[in-house]
């Protein structure tokens, strides 16, 4: 109310998102009738397991409701958005229907507080739960933007402790006991709040009541939430605005009277907080996939990521020679192949090697630029010469093969003849011996007969003579 902060960082708590578990997109709803200083108060406590995919801030009557300063009952807004559980959301001007504070609905920023310091609750794109005070700069962050954000009044619980006194000082410096802000904090009434528990589950609180007659004050609400393991929470609109809708049907006792005083009627309010079936983030998977049970199933071979917004062409990443597109690698000039890992074949250049070289004498060109200056013209051949040389080369190859074959055949012939001759001579020798062996006395040495021959002249029989 009293301070406006445009830049810098303000006090807030960021809570990491709970781990994503497929199929765990449910909610837990509890109904209570509890006694607060001997007053029986009825209400509901709702936990949403995966806030990023199951929680939305809705504009009154659908998208464009804040710009149109529309007001609608929670039932009307919740039915159109198919909410399982819905409550009234942020504050608004009763006379004009203007949405107050920051409103980001499904990534669309539809209302701004201009840095006005009231308690905020939001979810960033990565699922981080943010509670507390935000500068305008932080609200407008584009690196990890808010996908859902709304403003309340009074930060009830900060990091597991009641934070009402501190937030009274921050959200308004006139904290005199009798001031309207102090009365707002301490009066019993119908109340609603939003926060999260230690598991990172989103918590919605609603209590029936009527200002100054039934219900609870902010202290009692904060103590109740603390007992439910809530670690950060802010107060949302209450009084006649407090409404709880279950599966599209009013499930609370609103405190506003109808035109007929006999009955109570739900108020037409501004924004609505809604817990629905798991939705994809973003709901259309960036147009590159289909949403199945809150998870994007990407189409094509190259879209990746939880929101199908990342292109992935494999571990080689187009070999640093191309750009990954939804149809695969688009290679830089001079490169080709599914991974852009091959250079253009000779005679081709340009993106995807689609352009033929236009150099004189059929010279190759630069595969990237098509420039012909990379090789000397002398080295390039006229087409007729090239054909001639090719013919010569072919003839040479044929002759060489023929000569080589003949030479090998000749060698084989010689080798066969030699082996055959060796075999025949060995067979002849075996035939004479008949398997035995014989002595061959030396006949002479240097023209003289041996001593044995000298001693046994003439017809002496030598049984061993061959």
């Amino acid at each position: 109310d009293c301070t406006r902060v445009r830049a810098g960082s303000r006090e807030h708590e960021s809570w990491p998102p709970p781990p994503t578990t497929p199929g765990a997109g449910g909610l837990a709803l509890r109904t209570f009738v509890s006694h607060f200083r001997d007053r029986a108060v009825a209400g509901h406590l709702t936990r949403a397991v995966e806030p990023l995919r199951t929680f939305s801030v809705l504009e009154p009557g659908g998208p464009g409701g804040c710009a149109a300063r529309r007001r609608a009952t929670v039932e009307e807004t919740a039915r159109a958005a198919d909410c399982r559980v819905a409550q009234n959301g942020g504050f608004f001007r009763m006379n004009s229907g203007e949405c107050l504070g920051n409103v980001v609905s499904d990534e669309r920023r539809v209302s701004s507080s201009g840095g006005l310091q009231n308690a905020q609750f939001g979810i960033r794109r990565d699922g981080t739960l943010v509670t507390g005070y935000l500068s305008e700069e932080e609200v407008l962050d584009t690196e990890n933007p808010f996908v859902q954000l709304l403003s309340g009044v009074v930060w009830l619980i900060r990091n597991g402790s009641i934070y009402i006194n501190e937030s009274q000082a921050t959200e308004c410096d006139e904290t005199q006991e009798t001031g309207s802000f102090s009365k707002f904090v301490n009066v019993i009434s119908a109340r609603t709040a939003i926060g999260h528990d230690r598991k990172g589950q989103l918590v919605l609180f609603h209590a029936d009541g009527q200002t100054e007659q039934r219900g609870i004050n902010l202290w009692e609400m904060a103590e109740f939430l603390l007992k439910q393991d809530v670690v950060n929470a802010i107060n949302l609109d209450g009084g006649g605005s407090a409404t709880f809708v279950l599966n599209g049907t009013l499930a609370s006792y609103p405190s506003d009277h109808c035109q007929d005083n006999m009955w109570r009627c739900p108020r037409q309010v501004s924004t609505v907080v809604c817990v629905h079936e798991p939705r994809c983030q973003p709901p259309d998977c960036h147009g590159h996939g289909t949403c199945v049970d809150g998870h994007c199933h990407c189409t094509g071979h190259f879209w990746r990521g939880p929101g199908c917004d990342e292109l992935d062409c494999g571990p080689s990443n187009c070999s640093q020679h191309g750009l990954c597109t939804e149809t695969g690698c688009r290679c830089d000039a001079g490169w080709t192949g599914s991974n852009c890992s091959e250079e253009c074949p000779l005679g081709w250049h340009g993106p995807g090697c689609q352009r033929p070289c236009k150099c004189e004498h059929h010279c190759p060109c630069d595969p990237k630029t098509g420039n012909c200056s990379i090789s000397g013209v002398k080295q390039c051949l006229q087409p007729s010469e090239a054909t001639l040389r090719a013919g010569e080369l072919s003839f040479f190859t044929r002759t060489a093969w023929l000569a080589l074959t003949l030479a090998l055949a000749f060698l084989l012939l010689i080798s066969t003849a030699a082996n055959l001759s060796l075999l025949l001579s060995r067979a002849e020798r075996n035939r004479h011996l008949h398997g035995g062996y014989a002595y061959h006395p030396l006949q002479e040495m240097n023209g003289e007969p041996l001593a044995t021959e000298k001693e046994q002249p003439g017809g002496a029989h030598n049984p061993f003579k061959d």
Partner: peptide, 24 residues
């Protein structure tokens, strides 16, 4: 079953209606 519109009679306002919420 329609009992008519709400009379918006249970007002719970954090700040006085007349007070302009101007930054200082």
């Amino acid at each position: 079953l329609d009992s008519g519109a709400s009379r918006d009679d249970d007002l719970l306002l954090p700040y006085p209606r007349a007070r302009a919420r101007l930054p200082r």
